[in-house]
Every structure is written in C-alpha cells, then in structure tokens.
Design a protein around this nucleic acid. Structure first.
Lengths: 230, 230, 230, 230
DNA sequence: AATGAATGAGAGTTCATTCAT
DNA sequence: TATGAATGAACTCTCATTCAT
C-alpha cells in the first residue's frame, strides 16, 4: 500500500498531489490565475474535476501549495548562503550567491513571474508569506554586504536597499525575459549584473573583471566597442 | 457626480470617457482587473451600466484606453529626454532622466504596478504595446549610454541590458514599495540608485557617490581609477 | 416609471420581487428547500437564472423574504388581538382570536408547514426570528388567558404552556392536513378545537356550546353518537 | 471501533448494519438529512465509504431502515395499549397511554423532530409509511375514546380528530422543546396535557385537574356538571 | 469483506454585455 | 442619451455512488 516509502501515507497519494500542483502551476503561468478553470487543471492533470478535489480543497489551496514548494526552496537557498558566508567570506559568497540565485530563478522562471503578476490576486495570507520570504532574502544579502563592509571589501551606505537592488537585478531574468532571453545567455547576464553590483559596492574593483571570466579588459577600453542589441 | 460643466462642453462624450477611464483605472488598481466588475466601474463613474456602454465598448477597451494615456506620457517623456541629450550631453541627461523617471513613477505608482501585475491578463495586442513602449524606453536610455560612451564619459559593454537595468532599478520604487516606502524617501532612493548606476558605467567612477549619496559631483572627479564594466 | 405608487422605487420593482418570492415559496413547499434549484425558481418565475439574481441575492435571502411577509402578518395579527382584548374582554377575544388564527393558517397553510419542516435547514438568524415570533404569539395568548383568570372566566394553572397548546392545536390544521383536510371542514375544526380549549380553561362552561353554533346540545348527550371517520 | 465481539458473531453484517443506522440517525438528527454526507456517515460508523455501501444500498435506504426501527417501536406501543384497554378500561388506559407516549417521545425526541422536519424530503413511499403509522396511532387512541364513550366515561363528538389532538399535544414535547424544556419538567407537562385532554372529554370533568395538576382523582368526581365537547 | 480513488452531473452564484423602453 | 432589467454561459465546488484492487 505504501506508494513510495516513508511517512506520507496519511493524505492521499502525495505524488498525485504533486502532479496536480505542477499541472496547475503550468496553466496558471500560461493563462493567468483566474483564466485557468479548475476543469482545465483537472484535464491537464489527466483526471476529472471531481477527482481533482480529492487532492486539493480549493483553487487558492493550489496556490498555497505551489508557494510552499517555492518558499521551501528559497529558505534552503538562504540557509546555504549563510553557511557559505561563514566559510568563504563576503566577496566570494556574494558572487556565488548571485550566481546561484540566478540559476534558481532560471529554473523556475515561470513561477517567479507568477508571483510578480498574481500577488495582487492572492489571499492576504499568501501575500504576507511572499513578502516575508523576500524580506528574509534581502536580510541575507544584507548580511553578506555588512560582512563585506566590516572586512573592508565593500563600501555600502544603505545595506538593505542595496540588497533589494541585487534581488531585483536578478529577478529581471524572469520578469523581463521577453527581452533578455533574446538578448543574452544566462551566464552573460550573470556576469553583467554581477559586474554592475560589484562596481557599485566594491572598495577595490580590480578583481571584478578577473574573476568574472573577462577575456581581455583591454579590448573593451575603447568606448567604440559598444554592444548593440541585434 | 457633478458633470464638470465648462471647458469641453461641445464634446461632452470625450470628458465622460475620461471620467470613466479614470474611475476604471482607480478600481483596477485597487481591486485588480478581474475583481472589478463593470457595474462597479459604472457606479464609480456616477452612471449606470447601460450608459457606461455608450462610451466604451468592452472591458478590455478600457484597459486599452488607460494604456493610451500612459503610453502617451511615456512617449513624451522619451521625446523630452532625447531633446535633453542633444542640449546637455549624456552625463547630465542620464542623471536628469533618471530623476524625472522616478518622479514620474512616483506619481503613477499604482499604474506601474498595474502593468506589472495585469500584463498577464491582457490581450496579446495590449501586451505587445506594453513591451513596445518598454523597448522604446530602453532604446532611449541606450542612446544616452551610447552617447556617453562616445564622449568618453561612460564605459558600457552591453548598452541595452544596462538600459533595462536602469529602468528596473527605477520601477522598483513602484513594485517594491511595500519595502521601500517604509525605508527611505524618494530623493534618497533616487540618489542611491543613480549612484549605483553611475558607478557601474562611469569611466571616472563616482565611488563616493555610490556609497554616500554624492554630495558634490566635483569631489568625485578624482576617484583613483579604472572601472571595468561587468 | 413608477410601477405602483408610493415609496418603493429604490430597489428593482417590488412586484417582480413578490412574484419571485411567491414562486419560490410554492416550489419550496412542494419540493422542499434543498431539492428546489434556483433554476427552477427562475423558471417558475418566468425568468432566467441571471435575471433572478437581480431581485434576490441568495437562496437564503428568499427564505428571509418569505419570512418577512409571514412575520409581518403574524405581528399584525398579534396587535389586532391585543386591541380586541381591551374592547371585548377575554372570553370573546379568545374565541375570535382562535377563529382568526385558524383562518390565517388556512390561507397560508403551505407556508406554515414550510416553517415546521425546514426550520432545521435555516440559518441561525432565521431560526431565531421564527422562535421569536412564536414566543410573541404565545405571550399574546397568555395575556388573554391571564385577563380571563383575573375576570374570573378562566382558571388556568400554566398560562404559557396553555398558550402553546392553543397555538399547536391550531397549527395542526396545517401540518396534519393529510388527515384533517379529508376529515372535516375548517369551521368544524375550529369549533372542535375551540371547544377542547375552552373546556380546559373555562370556569363556567355552558356558554361554550351556545356560542359556537351548536344546534342541539341535547342530541349529543348520548354517548353513542360518536363520529367515526369514514 | 470495537466490533462488539460476541452475541451475533455469526451474522456480523446485521450488527454492522445497526451500527451504521445508529450512526446515520445520530448525524441526520444533528445536522439534517441533506447536510449529512455519506462520507460523514461512514466516518461516524468507523468505516470508509466503500465499505459502507456493502451494508446499505442508498442514502434513502438508511432512512427506511431508521424508520423500520421506529415504526416497530410504535407498533409495539400500539399493541401494548390495546391490550391494556382490554384489561384496565378506557379511563385508566388513556391516562397510562398518554403517560407512556410522552415518555417514549422524551426518549426519542430527536427522532420525532426528524420525522416532522424531514418528511418533506423523503420518498413518497417513506412518507406514506409515516402517515400510516400515525393513522394507526390515532386509530388506537380512537379505540380508547370510543370505549370510553360506550362506558359512559367520555363524551367525544369527533373521536378521530380528538385522537389526533392527543397525539399532537404529546408531540409538542419534542417539536416545541425550545420552549417547553426551559419551562417545565416532563411530569409537569404530562399532568398538564392529560388534564387538558380529560377536561375536554370527561363526562364528569376533572375541572380542578385541568387547572391544578389533579392531585386526587377522587376529589374531582363531584365537579358539578355538563361538559359539552366542542 | 474492505478500500478509497474515481466519477460526473449538478448545485448556487457571477458578470460582461445587450436591448427595449 | 439614458436606463436597468434581461441574458446565459461559465465559474468553483459538492456528493452519492461505483469499481478496480
């Protein structure tokens, strides 16, 4: 009777639930929250509406469940970065955190956009949770920045605001993908944004270029070499 | 309820239309697109639903009309900045454009958020126009940056991406206002973001500015060195 | 535009509303509350479901409205009886009140049964109102009985309980009509119940027969003359 | 949950059935017929819905089964009373039957109310059976009354209607318990109602009894006169 | 006998839009 | 132009019942 293994036998098969969440997320992202009907969610899940309600209890419930998954991932992300900070120091940690953050966003692009777009249609509770996690994320970036200031690597006047800047410059990858996706690769994007951020906070900027894979700093010294989008 | 007798009494339908658009915009922003009913729009406009449809033809139509107003404003904004660029040069123009952009956003905060949140619920056509104007805005910032590169003031590798960065770092004032509004004033925000951007693109980096809000542009003319973008 | 005359123009045409209430009442009584669908109510009202909701706001709302009508009638009934008591004295008033009560029930038989049967499915508020009016009704009968005791006409130990007895012996006409309707006429029923009640409370019983239209008290003196139902 | 091992272990399905009926009855009474779901019935029975349907075939089926139990009890009650009539005569039998009836109702108050309230939601067949048993009950009371008339103890014009009066005055204990329960005890209620009934049918009226709860039947043997029924 | 996932018709309610007056 | 009643498709969610295991 045990479907997988472990302690998840009380609520009807977890895996089915996951399928529904994924299907719903897919539709929500493609069509928007309220233009997606529960019948569509059911069909996309390969079941009928009656069955659907065996696994979830409300449309809003689905959102909460999608959120649960996401927030768990973000929390883990935060935890990892804080551990990293203790081991590698602020400069390296900031670089790596930005890199990891962008890859995380890249993986769940749609979900990110979903939060941005549908937060207005969510229950107060859900909205609060969303803001909460953003606050924590910013706080984590803030810790890195503060550590960097103490170590003399960074000079940041407004730590929290800068933290939000970093987040937003990352989220762009998701919510401006209509432009960015056509414009550059993820790695190029990461390098560019990291450069912008570090140039804004670094006390000694040289290692910026060196660390970010820049081939020849020289070639770029000429102002003419401006990349124009195709 | 008062009909605003006067000015454009010859074309009352035009002013009526505006009233409706304004009322609708107010509601859309407060309650979201699909949670606002046409009856509510009518009531907020001081008319009944039947009359409402004499002035507009569809709910989507209203959105288009709201958009028309907005886009016109942005287009004017773009035109102004381009004229400014010709007169004042890239550095001054960039600073002023960022400042004006932020004030514009501050005035129409809700509208900005509205576009971000409801773009997913709009007609393809509407979405396309939205993207179009963003592209133009970015192109305008791109012109300033390119001009700055030519003049030797800026060093930017990816002009367009940087342009989008500037826009997004401005839009933050609207879509992260749950954090920023509690955190700093508009002027502080402008100074901070301008500093971040300039430190990322300036050939002679206003190091101090990025970190301290740059009191005097003069003092920064000396910042030791080398800013490598990215 | 005024449909009837008077002060009822704010809410959509009152008369239409009444039609819906009546149609709904008819169906509720025939099929039960929850077996009657709103679509049926609409059809019975000669409109479609969308239109139905112009006039009412909830299924429960209909019940409340049916109740409003009924309770208003009962309250008026109570008021009238109390005025009567002041003018005609307890004995005559009791007789006439019972008579009037039974005629009232006869007119709204179905509604009476409806209250008995569906009170369990009502909102707490509605149930409370129902009990409230029953309490008032009982209090009114209680006043008559008390007055009769003071005047020496009645001898009643438990006034309130007797009041409820009177009410229930009247309501029977509605909720046992599957038997009574086949068994006797309303007038016969009234005479019988009035007799039962008066015999239980009267100090001097003689006028009972005299007043209730009994042809010959004599004829009944023989125990053999028992009416057996067909 | 415990299967009650023992007694009828050979026909466990019978006992299971009973458990289900009892559980269903409990829920139907507490929440109403249509607000009780089969899932709830299953849970209350300690089984799952699939298993439930091994023992019963329909929701309506359960009602029928509850009814079977009830009606059997009433039939036994009727039989007992008829035997009593043969032995003790009409006056004593009537008193005792009323007393026993009230105690029976007191025990199964909820069930009584259930029949009153949900009869409208039952299948025609079920409703017919309900009426049938009421008819039999009335017939039984009728026999007592008729016997009393023959013996010269009672004088009743309309036997059947009076029988129904007696039943209804008893049922009150259940369906008006929102008032009566707060008002008096069961014994007080029985005494009061018995008094009312007897005063309405006795040839030598227990006048005192009706008003005072009749301490001694003896003292009343003299009450002056003439009770005319009706 | 036991399970509980699956079913799908149908419930109440909403709302953009139309149209007769 | 102004009105607001009328429309009906579509929505979310429920539940008695079935059926494969």
């Amino acid at each position: 009777m045990v479907k997988k293994a472990g302690a998840d036998a009380n609520k009807p098969s977890i895996s089915r639930r996951r399928e529904i969440i994924m299907a719903a997320a897919r539709l929500f992202l493609k069509k928007g929250l309220h233009k997606t009907t529960m019948r569509e969610v059911a069909r996309e899940s390969g079941i009928v509406v009656g069955t659907l309600y065996h696994y979830i209890s409300t449309k809003d419930d689905i959102i909460t469940m999608i959120m649960d998954e996401e927030l768990a991932a973000v929390h883990e992300f935060i935890r990892d970065s804080e551990m990293m900070l203790a081991k590698l120091g602020p400069v390296k940690t900031l670089r790596m955190t930005i890199d990891r953050y962008l890859h995380m966003i890249d993986i769940s692009q749609d979900v990110q956009v979903f939060w941005y777009q549908e937060s207005g249609n969510m229950l107060p509770d859900q909205r609060r949770r969303l803001i909460e996690v953003e606050d924590k994320l910013a706080a984590m970036y803030g810790k890195i920045l503060t550590a960097g200031c103490k170590s003399g690597d960074f000079r940041v006047k407004d730590v929290l605001l800068t933290a939000h800047d970093i987040i937003v410059l990352g989220d762009m990858w998701a919510f401006r993908r209509w432009f960015i996706a056509k414009h550059c690769t993820l790695d190029e994007f990461i390098r560019h944004q990291t450069g912008l951020i570090l140039s804004g906070i670094s006390v000694r900027p040289p290692e910026v270029a060196a660390a970010s894979g820049e081939k020849t700093a020289k070639a770029q010294k000429r102002g003419g070499d401006v990349r124009t989008d195709k």
